[in-house]
């Protein structure tokens, strides 16, 4: 009996030590090298910031194009995935029953478990297929990447929307019905606003996933030197790929430091999104636990 507790005690301390040390070391190392290089020249290199932002002159030695590329990518992904993701979540929470509900939630679960490289492969196959059939000169591009990322983040949207709607008290629905709300009105004016914070949290979570994923975009059109994304059918740059590429292919100290800077920026972006998400979800929980 005592031996077991002793063993567990050793394991517990060892595990805590392992996690805390490795995490602090990795992040500390990153901050140590990355924090000092965060300034305007990290973003814009030698190009004047104003000209870079307006796009009148290209940025060659800064992370600006990758930064904007990531923002565009996330924006495009959300534009494609928001409506179906939230819609499917609401459908699961309120309008499906029995086998249908089980099948659909299982499909969403399975989609969540698909490795992101397989999503990328799917995008790639899709392009091969398009080339052979409809559009002979289809190629990998930012729209394709966003489409595949949308697939990747959809489950997060569906699941958080569903659980926020399901966590609302039943009396809310009954009240709405007794006041003569139609189904559509109830959704738009009562349920979605009431579950709004939870849904917003899910959106942040999904944005975080879209911003950090590398495997999908690697197969669907990301490059290292395209400049700002030129249009929906163009190649693009992105922060995570820039970081990935730097780790393997950097040629001088300056590029390496830029990599550290990019890693810091991406880390801060993801951390901010996750923080916002958890904050929103927590206030949502508190709100409804406080209510009857």
């Amino acid at each position: 009996m005592d031996a077991r507790i002793k063993l567990l005690r050793i394991l517990a301390w060892l595990s805590a030590f392992f996690v805390i040390c490795s995490f602090l070391m990795l992040i500390g190392f990153l901050i140590y090298h990355g924090a000092p290089v965060i300034n305007t020249s990290l973003f814009f290199g030698n190009t004047a910031p104003l000209e870079a932002i307006t796009g009148s002159r290209p940025v060659w030695d800064g992370i600006w194009p990758a930064f904007i590329g990531t923002l565009c990518l996330v924006g495009l992904t959300m534009a494609i995935s928001l409506l179906p993701g939230i819609g499917c979540g609401i459908y699961l929470a309120r309008y499906s029953e029995g086998r249908k509900k089980e099948m659909l939630s299982m499909a969403v679960d399975l989609l969540a478990s698909v490795p992101s490289i397989v999503m990328g492969l799917f995008g790639f196959v899709l392009i091969l297929f398009l080339r052979r059939t409809l559009a002979p000169d289809a190629t990998t591009c930012i729209s394709l990447a966003a489409f595949c990322l949308a697939l990747l983040v959809m489950p997060a949207l569906v699941v958080t929307t569903r659980s926020s709607i399901e966590s609302l008290p039943d009396s809310l629905v009954t009240t709405g019905i007794s006041l003569g709300f139609t189904e559509q009105q109830m959704l738009l004016h009562i349920l979605i606003p009431a579950a709004g914070k939870g849904i917003l949290g899910g959106i942040m979570l999904a944005m975080g996933r879209a911003a950090e994923d590398t495997a999908v975009i690697m197969l669907t059109g990301v490059v290292v030197n395209s400049g700002l994304p030129a249009g929906l059918g163009s190649k693009f740059e992105a922060l995570p790929f820039l970081i990935f590429y730097t780790a393997a292919q950097y040629t001088d100290q300056e590029e390496l430091l830029r990599g550290f800077g990019a890693a810091m920026v991406l880390l801060m972006l993801s951390a901010a999104l996750l923080y916002a998400a958890s904050k929103l979800q927590r206030t949502m929980e508190k709100h409804w636990k406080g209510a009857r």
Partner: peptide, 28 residues
């Protein structure tokens, strides 16, 4: 829907919607 507007109901436990007093009455 029309029926429920003409036949109003008050419940056992007060059930204001999670919004202001004004919105509670104006929204329906």
């Amino acid at each position: 829907t029309d029926l429920r507007r003409k036949v109003g109901m008050v419940f056992q436990i007060p059930n204001p919607l999670p919004m202001s007093i004004r919105r509670n009455i104006m929204l329906p």
